[in-house]
Write a protein that binds this DNA or RNA. Structure first.
Length: 430
RNA sequence: GUGAUUGUAGCUCAGUUGGUUAGAGCGCCAGGUUGUGGCCCUGGAGGUCGGGGGUUCGAGUCCCCUCAUUCACCCCA
């Protein structure tokens, strides 16, 4: 055993599990195409100010969860991305993609980093898939990102989901409400917990979704955000809900849902799953019209998006037995070399088969024939091809179907013909 | 950052009030089959019992420290 270990909060994904990841990612990519989202990749790090500006300096993420460093002491501070939205928006603004197409629909599957204590469903390096719809934030646009997210869950067969949704209103709505909330909370200030006291000044709305029962008690008597929404926000929210209901998407309205990123306005939502443990949030998102301005864009860019935790998605699917068997696909043929002195000839034949597009494996460790066959069986090779002295002399090679044990001696051309046919049939299967 | 939890073979785990060379199942390797896998049988390799210190005639077992894990708080994906 090596004395080195993976970094705390990070983990390796080995081939067995990769089969499952690939399955989920394939579904995501396919549905992204169906919904018209194109893939984007951005760097794993950005200049630190980008996140401070976008996510909000008073949030937990920026305040204590970022991996930040200065490359050379004097150079500009850099941070491993704790979320994707800011980076995507930065990239699109920098390239000025809106000049050629005013609406950009992008999706990603990317690794993120947050310096938290690891626990079930929470890592320091984790993966999110998500989508950003930039250039529109109409009720239909917001509904569309939610529909995309929910359809992925549906396609994967996930059960026990709960979609909660809320409207945070316009910036003006919130500004007015914030003052009302403060004046309500002020007499209770002495009873607020540490975190809530800090939020009282910087972002009192976050006190609303505190999980501290004492805070919830206090909040229960507070003025309601949804009663302070302007007509516009009210209408917008109703339309979003109407679109969702019309598509048969189940949701529940949660007037206390605020979420931990500062850039959201109007619609915000979160999906949780009963199959998960304490960290039961599977994904979330919302509308963020003001983010572009925050990042220095000369004009506002209406936008909405969501992100889903891939590890949590896999955990939930695992619990619900929705994942494919964790076994990497075996080769079409495993070349058996009974006598090592003929290895080079067998190696040439392997090359020919591969040139013909046939998945071919050959033992590279000089093992016994028995070991080679065992290995072929273990890796679920479809067939075994024997290449020894007799075969090279006669030009006839026994090809054994490992499932049925049927064996037949064929010329190399016949072997290639048959295996090629087999792999074509295989790839046609869904 | 706080609180608990668990560290014994590659994996899952036994290991009695402290007592000889630390075990099992699975996996791996080899043989049973002179050129044929799976099933079966036989054998083998593999452990500084997380690390350090202490108590003791003697520590996997008790004490202290430390590292790591896991779960929860917090927060979120």
């Amino acid at each position: 055993m090596s004395s080195y270990q993976v970094v705390k909060g990070a983990r390796d994904i080995f081939p067995d599990e990769m089969v499952q990841w690939n399955y989920v990612e394939e579904v995501i990519c396919r549905l992204a195409g169906v919904f018209g989202f194109n893939e984007i990749r951005t760097p794993v790090f950005e200049y630190t100010e980008l996140f401070q500006r976008s996510i909000g300096a008073s949030t937990d993420i920026v305040g204590k969860e970022m991996f930040t460093f200065c490359p050379d002491g004097s150079e500009r501070s850099i941070t491993l991305r704790p979320e994707m939205t800011a980076g995507v928006m930065r990239a699109v603004l920098q390239k000025n993609l809106f000049a050629s197409a005013p609406v950009q629909k992008l999706y990603y599957i990317s690794e993120l980093f947050r310096k938290e204590r690891p626990q079930a469903g929470r890592q320091r390096q984790f993966t999110q898939f998500g989508a950003e719809l930039l250039g529109a934030s109409s009720p239909a646009a917001v509904a569309e990102v939610i529909m995309f997210m929910m359809q992925v869950f549906g396609e994967l067969g996930l059960d026990g989901l709960r979609l909660r949704i809320n409207s945070l209103g316009s910036a003006d709505d919130r500004r007015r409400y914030r003052e009302e909330l403060r004046s309500y909370l002020a007499p209770h200030y002495g009873m607020l917990d540490q975190a809530s006291r800090e939020r009282f000044e910087k972002n009192p709305l976050r006190i609303l979704d505190s999980k501290n029962p004492d805070m919830q008690e206090i909040v229960s008597g507070a003025p309601k955000l949804h009663e302070h929404l302007g007509d516009e926000a009210r209408r917008d929210f109703d339309q979003v809900l109407g679109y969702l209901a019309g598509r048969g998407i189940d949701f529940s309205i949660d007037h206390l849902l605020v979420r931990g990123l500062d850039y959201y306005s109007y619609t915000a939502f979160e999906v949780s799953c009963t199959a998960l443990g304490a960290q039961d949030a599977l994904g979330g998102g919302g509308r963020y019209d003001s983010l572009a301005l925050e990042l220095g864009s000369p004009k506002e860019v209406p936008a909405a998006g969501f992100a889903v935790g891939m590890e949590r998605l896999l955990i939930a699917m695992q619990k619900q037995r929705l994942l494919p068997e964790a076994v990497p696909p075996g080769p079409e043929v495993f070349i058996i070399v009974p006598q090592q002195e003929f290895f080079d000839h067998a190696f040439d034949i392997a090359a020919r088969l591969r040139s013909a597009g046939i998945g071919t494996t050959i033992d590279l460790a000089g093992r016994s024939m028995k070991a080679q066959l065992r290995e072929a069986n273990r890796m679920r090779a479809a067939s075994a091809l024997f290449v020894g002295g007799d075969e090279l002399a006669s030009g006839l090679f026994p090809l054994k179907d490992l499932a049925s044990s049927a064996q037949e001696a064929l010329s190399l051309d016949a072997v290639i013909g048959r295996l090629r046919h087999a792999s074509i049939i295989k790839t046609r299967q869904p």
